[in-house]
Design a protein around this nucleic acid. Structure first.
Length: 319
DNA sequence: AAGATGCACAACCGCATTGTG
DNA sequence: ACACAATGCGGTTGTGCATCT
């Protein structure tokens, strides 16, 4: 038996949202929260009809809204809210620091846009995805760096198989563990002692995480680098030792000012990110470090003269 | 001035994962 | 344990605007 569609297709509006639709959605969510996205469109319209009658014409407008509902499926409502209407969204161009952070996190996490977005307060996964596809990827290509692997192209062009350096693999393992633990702790804190509205980890979250079993397992395993590494979570829960990234620091500098309710306090975060990936093991041959550092030095304007200095890398044909 | 082209971004689609009865 | 619904996520497409020819 196949899945039923998330919403009935008949009569549902598609395409750009209008101000009236935004208004209905914002008012309803501000008042009630989104609850069930599936039922939200009808509820929102009904609520508007019943309670928002500022002008003599409002009852008529409200009736129309009620009869037609939002005419959007819940999925569309969720997307509109999370990507555009949410009050904590930071509009405007990405700052240099944000771009650096996106590049660094992409090197670690790959195309896990939601995970990357969680590290940039006020930015959505969609926004970051667009930034990557329209700006950063091209920038990497023009530098002769494979956007998949964050490593310089070989003379044969882009690598056909994504390949990550040991340091990058370590970072990915650690980041995956951190994200898993973050989700778990978030659930636990909700369950045990948090009020319903408090879902964000406190500023000491990473400190606690670092001191938890996960961080402990990483600290203990300093220097061991085995090929068949499993996720750090698995490592932490078993006796099998595997590679580690002890002392890994990623210093991304200050995130753009004015960001609202960051998930963590970076200045206090013991897990400092450092573009140089200061892992202790066999990094001398790891070209991705150099590539990443080179990328971070990339000028933000369109001045391409920097390419003259990059004789180490093969320039791809499209540049 | 008008059409072509490129770019940026919002929105959609389909699959994966999670929740629930 | 299973089926189904709800939600989340990433890839892709559509659209409007700016720039170029």
């Amino acid at each position: 038996m196949g899945r039923r569609p998330c919403c009935e297709r008949k009569g549902l509006k598609k395409g750009p949202w209008g101000p009236e639709e935004d208004d209905i959605l914002i008012n309803y969510i501000n008042k009630h929260g989104h609850g069930s996205w599936r039922s939200l469109p009808k509820l929102a319209a009904l609520w508007k009809f019943l309670f928002c009658r500022a002008s003599p014409l409002q009852p008529i407008k409200g009736l129309i809204s009620t009869l037609t509902g939002l005419r959007r499926c819940g999925k569309s409502c969720r997307l509109r809210w999370t990507n555009y209407l949410r009050p904590d969204i930071k509009r405007g161009p990405f700052t240099l620091d944000e771009e650096k952070l996106v590049i660094q996190l992409h090197a670690i996490l790959g195309n896990r846009w939601a995970a990357i977005a969680s590290q940039l307060p006020g930015r959505t996964d969609n926004e970051i995805k667009n930034l990557w596809n329209t700006h950063l990827k091209k920038r990497l290509l023009c530098m002769g760096v494979d956007p998949l692997t964050h490593e310089p192209f070989t003379s044969g062009g882009p690598t056909t198989r994504p390949r990550s350096s040991p340091a990058t693999r370590h970072m990915a393992q650690w980041e995956s563990a951190r994200l898993e633990a973050e989700a778990r702790l978030s659930k636990e804190s909700l369950f045990f002692n948090s009020p319903p509205t408090s879902v964000k980890p406190d500023p000491d979250f990473f400190l606690r995480l670092w001191n938890s079993e996960v961080g402990e397992s990483f600290r203990k395993l300093n220097g061991e680098d085995k090929a068949d590494c499993r996720s750090p979570i698995s490592q932490a829960s078993s006796s099998t030792k595997c590679g580690s990234v002890s002392g890994v620091t990623i210093d991304v500098g200050p995130i753009a000012a004015g960001s609202s309710t960051p998930k963590s306090s970076r200045t206090e975060d013991p897990i400092m990110f450092d573009a140089s990936f200061s892992s202790s093991s066999n990094e001398s041959e790891d070209s991705s470090d150099t590539a990443l550092q080179l990328l971070l030095d990339f000028p933000i304007n369109n001045d391409m003269s920097f390419l003259e200095d990059v004789d180490t890398y093969t320039r791809p044909p499209q540049c």
